[in-house]
Amino acid sequence: MKGTLIVVLVFAIGCLAGYSGLINLESFGEIGANLTMYVLYLLIFLVGISMGCNPELKKIIKSVSPKIFLLPLVTILGTLCFSALVSLLISGWGVFDCLAVGSGMGYYSLSSVLISQYKEASLGVQLAAELGTIALLTNIFREMFTLICAPLLVRWFSPFAPIASAGVTAVDVCLPVIIRTAGDRVLPAAVVSGVVTDFSVPVLVSFFCSL
């Protein structure tokens, strides 16, 4: 619980600092604009080191079996089922619009661009941009939700829960949090799940946009 609180607090302070203009990343030029990426690379490198010096590494690699590919599959299915269900509560958008947004799987930059482009023909520029923004927000929220709730998800559901919740980001932004909360042994599952869902995003988003 303490970890979750710190995460929320740090993120909120960051938001405030950005909003108030106290910290302006763009004033640092190129480095500032790409800062999140640099920090991400540092993080992933550290995760790599911690795996490398884990004495259980051999055991972890041995434990990988083909059935791990079922995890991205159920992740995608679960997302789609519940996105379709919740579309009943959302006015103004059809079930396929909601499915297209859900298929973003946490990949907010790609899904929002794809949706605003593909939907332009059927919805018009204004509505397509709106749905694109919903996709952007939805998938940012999904990433935030995973980062913040990962410890609770592991405790209440399963070690796979933060991987499923992370979607595409299981292999990048959320990976360190997943390893810290669910343990080193889920690393292969996280990488496989992140990579497979990543490939599913352009396919599924364009599919649901065409319906």
Binding site: G78, I134, F157
Partner: peptide, 18 residues
Amino acid sequence: QALLLALAGAMGSVFFAA
């Protein structure tokens, strides 16, 4: 709307994965 969709997507996959 985005919050609803995000929670639905995340929790749907969490249930299935469980």
